[in-house]
Amino acid sequence: MKRKVILLVSIVTIIIFSSVALYSQIYLKPEETINKEEKTREVLTKAPISKVLYWGARGQDVIDVQSKLYRWGYYDGTVDGIYGAGTYRAVRRFQRKNGLTVDGIVGPKTAEALGLSFKTKTSNRSVSRNDNVYLLARAIHGESRGEPYIGKVAVAAVVLNRVEHPSFPNSIASVIYQPGAFTAVSDGQINLPPDDESVKAARDALNGWDPTYGCRYYWNPATATSRWIWSRKVVIKIGKHWFGN
């Protein structure tokens, strides 16, 4: 009898815990992925500092500066994103050691010495090609992991060919997020951080490489569920995907 009770209790506990675990796995992102994603983004944008930093400044830029100084032993306070007296002194120390103008202000030269890239022209900051590269890279990664390199470029090319075509939306984001257009969007795989190869393939496609010669559809004949897609005419088969119009 006692054994039965223990058995029952443990079964119930297991059920509850596994459901909770399942729940959190589905709805909450593991921290690791987030970190990795941030890292990829950092590589992509080289963490640009957007303005000149001085006493009183706050934000991510300050955190970047503080953590650099902390790592190199100039700063011993907390990395809190607030440019206070401690940060000021640390910056001055850093400038003195590195032969920079000692003013306690992080301008272009100091930022460069810290290894942080500095955007000097604020007027152009709004225009960037990186965001589209990154979005496209994520779509490629979600859609065609395990495909040969050229298959990845081809998938990206299909997205861009759709943008150019009147039957489809007119921007990269609208094409990618069109309801039902890509499985990677429906099952959330698009949110995985892309690898280097996907980023490279996205850039190639944006620069004009098109191994599909203008195709607007592709499908995997092994998994395609839509009957309609079979009415499309195939132009070329690359890896597991068929590309057509």
């Binding site: 010669y213 203008g214 005419k233 132009v235 070329i236 057509g244």
Partner: peptide, 15 residues
């Protein structure tokens, strides 16, 4: 060679 489909006209440059 990559396998081609039957849609020769579908490509903007047939290749």
């Amino acid at each position: 060679a990559f396998e081609e489909g039957e849609n020769k006209k579908g490509a903007n440059i047939s290749a």
